[in-house]
Design a protein around this nucleic acid. Sequence first.
DNA 1: AAACTATATTTGGTTGACCAATTATTGGTT
DNA 2: AACCAATAATTGGTCAACCAAATATAGTTT
Lengths: 230, 230
Amino acid sequence: MLENLDKIKIEDPVEIIISQIRELIISGAVKPGEKLPPERKLAEKMGVSRNQVREAINKLRFYGIVKVQPQSGTIVTGMGTIALEGLISDILKLEQVDFKSLVATRLLLEKEAARLAALHRTKDDLIQLSNALDRYENKLLESGVAVEEDLLFHIKIAEAGKNTVLKSLMMIITPDIVKSYINLKVCDDKNNRKTIDEHRDILSMIADQNPEGAMEAMNQHLTDVQAFIQ
Amino acid sequence: MLENLDKIKIEDPVEIIISQIRELIISGAVKPGEKLPPERKLAEKMGVSRNQVREAINKLRFYGIVKVQPQSGTIVTGMGTIALEGLISDILKLEQVDFKSLVATRLLLEKEAARLAALHRTKDDLIQLSNALDRYENKLLESGVAVEEDLLFHIKIAEAGKNTVLKSLMMIITPDIVKSYINLKVCDDKNNRKTIDEHRDILSMIADQNPEGAMEAMNQHLTDVQAFIQ
DNA sequence: AAACTATATTTGGTTGACCAATTATTGGTT
DNA sequence: AACCAATAATTGGTCAACCAAATATAGTTT
């Protein structure tokens, strides 16, 4: 009998507050550049504590939707409406990502990162990459699993490419990659040898300053991983 | 005489706290899966208020580095160390992005988005894109500036591509694009006609389901914008 | 001794009051 | 009337005390 009852979705108060503020902005009541009502007023109007309003504003600030000026007010930034369009309810933070999109996007970013690394790597970058690769191999042979070290190597590649934005984006999706990989148990002993070789291939292409080769090596590596998962 | 004095970089307390917690994690004192010391202890040890520790933990939670369990404790997630490597001091949030990296990365994402849109667009997507384009043109001809509407059109393209992660990433860098464009005054009357035509080209390629053409049209469009800036 | 229950402690969350910087208002001076 | 300085009100930031849930501890029973 009890299993007929639907689970009640308890909604986080701050999410409700966010959507209320969102309404204020997209309805045009508060236009970009203007100030939001003060925290106290918002709290009073909505009948909640000021701290909760505060936390909601914090989140909005995090996404760059508003900008707070201490002792003055919080102004909504110009582009706010764009981000808000997507904020409908999926609290951003690329939650609930579908795996296909994730790996496809990763492939795109990683290939470019490898290409750029081949073009712009310095001697110091090569040392860093080599060290990261060593750490990866040691950890893998030792404990059989080295997801983090693996991805750290990839991050180092992005660093060598000298494109800060690309690196940031890779770091943003990395947590989700890790999560997916752990869930799907990517790591398998018989694959270790192969992935190590592939990593070395990538590094050598970068060392040779061969952008197309690096891109292709990365492509090979990731499609291998991809194939293994499916 | 006074201009000889260096500006003192006043560091935000919570950033210091973050780096301290970061030290705890990467030093291995608190391993992934384990609990962080309670907020009160951290506050006492560092000689700061609990609220500041609290805010630091909030930020770490945003980045997915820790996960708080109310009335129990805050555990560090497995992938935390990776993100922390890059968190050294540049407060993430792709602050202080260099413009070159930004436009280069945008080009990469937008081209792929256009390609995917040509492959996967539905009839409804075409309607949405057409509407977005209309809004852009109207706003541009009316007020002479339509940065937001411009980017909203691009976001719609990403949506039509059906790759959620790619869209999220585009939404992440969009605010910085807007900021840069406004600062550099991209919009200019004599360019309006051209950009409108280019937008229409992109849309028609997507409508024709021509992925290579869409990619090339997008490439053309963005390199034009890029050239105008420099 | 083991298992369970009741109590005490610890933990993150919440609240209301206070602080300093900013902004608005007021009164006076030129 | 215009400008300016002094004061009052407002605002986001900070803090210490309190709350309820989760956990650890002690006590009791079997």
